[in-house]
């Protein structure tokens, strides 16, 4: 993919959550997201994958300032949006939007869906009268494949897929440039997932959107993304264009994830890499490389030295000691 201009620059984004210690217990910190750096290019789809607890949703929220970041910068249009005061947020509120995971929880059950979509249009003064807002809402409903008479209905009258379309319409109401989709299809049936994914692709072409597509499902991410960022325990492990990530996998964690994608095939069983155990606690992450406790290629060095991000090939970044040599070479 030809690299277009950068639309968003993320530098050293870090989010720690404080954990209240109990009586006579010391306070801890959950290192949800640590030192994330990446660039987002105009009209690409960047997939972010990782297990539960890898910090991908936290990252998405920190990007949009829904969570206060501990440190780091998110540069949009030459401004660090994390520095913007709450009153100056309208810029990012309009141009960076989010589609949420749970279509059953992300719509206010007491508000008609039409009003749910029209409200941000009015709140951000995109139009001046409620009549205009209604018109715009009806267009949005059509855009996401819903009928205009659904304006007057309440969320509980819709199926999961329809609700997700409504969520998308609400996010699109502000005419965003960047859409963060946080597990936007994970809660849906597989057949509906495909519909929504196609809707995302169609909207992208129609509206020239840039997506950050957060998912735990590598197959879904592969289908929709131009580039994929693999996260583990709050850190980026590998970042590469989609074809490269699958054709030439570097990081052992990515290898394990890819080998876990189920594939219908008449050939013999492929060797699966099974990772033992769960993701370690982000309160007390392993020393050195965070993945070493579950890695099947772990070395002595992994325990003591924290690996740095290395560009092993052009646009292909890996955080693993196996490839340190290439950096020096």
């Amino acid at each position: 993919m030809p690299m277009a201009e950068k639309i968003l620059e993320v530098k050293g984004l870090t989010k720690y959550f404080d954990v209240q210690g109990g009586f006579l217990k010391k306070k801890g910190q959950v290192r949800a997201v640590e030192n994330i750096c990446f660039d987002l290019y105009n009209s690409e789809t960047l997939g972010i994958v990782g297990e539960s607890g890898s910090g991908k949703s936290t990252l998405g929220r920190a990007l949009l300032k829904l969570l206060k970041s501990t440190s780091g910068e998110v540069v949009y249009k030459g401004k660090n949006i994390l520095d913007l005061s709450d009153t100056n947020l309208s810029l990012i509120r309009r141009e960076l939007q989010m589609v949420f995971q749970d279509p059953y929880a992300s719509l206010n059950p007491r508000i008609k869906v039409g009003n749910t979509i029209a409200e941000p249009i009015l709140a951000n003064k995109m139009v001046s009268t409620s009549g205009q807002a209604r018109e715009k809402t009806l267009k949005l409903l059509e855009l996401v494949g819903l009928r205009p008479e659904m304006y007057e209905r309440f969320p509980h009258e819709f199926s999961g897929g329809q609700r997700q379309r409504i969520s998308i319409a609400r996010a699109l109401a502000l005419e965003p440039k960047v859409l963060v989709c946080d597990e936007a299809v994970s809660a849906l049936d597989v057949s509906v997932q495909a519909q929504i994914l196609n809707l995302f692709n169609q909207l992208k072409n129609q509206l020239d959107l840039t997506y950050i597509f957060i998912s735990h499902d590598l197959a879904v991410t592969k289908y929709i993304s131009n580039r994929i960022m693999v996260m583990y325990l709050g850190e980026v492990m590998e970042l590469a264009p989609t074809e490269k990530l699958f054709s030439k996998t570097f990081h052992p964690y990515t290898e394990a994830l890819i080998s876990a994608i189920p594939e219908p095939s008449t050939k013999g069983k492929r060797k699966r890499i099974i990772l033992e155990g769960d993701i370690p606690s982000p309160i007390d992450p392993p020393s050195g490389c965070k993945f070493r406790t579950r890695c099947f290629k772990t070395m002595k060095k992994c325990k003591n030295v924290h690996p740095e991000m290395v560009e092993v090939e052009s646009n292909h970044f890996v955080r693993c000691h196996l490839y340190d040599a290439r950096k020096e070479a």
Partner: peptide, 20 residues
């Protein structure tokens, strides 16, 4: 989540409290 969604689309805290 719909409260977070409302914050995300720029609804003011007052509207979130007294409406949503």
């Amino acid at each position: 989540q719909f409260i977070e969604a409302a914050r995300c689309v720029g609804i003011s805290p007052r509207m979130i409290l007294f409406k949503h």
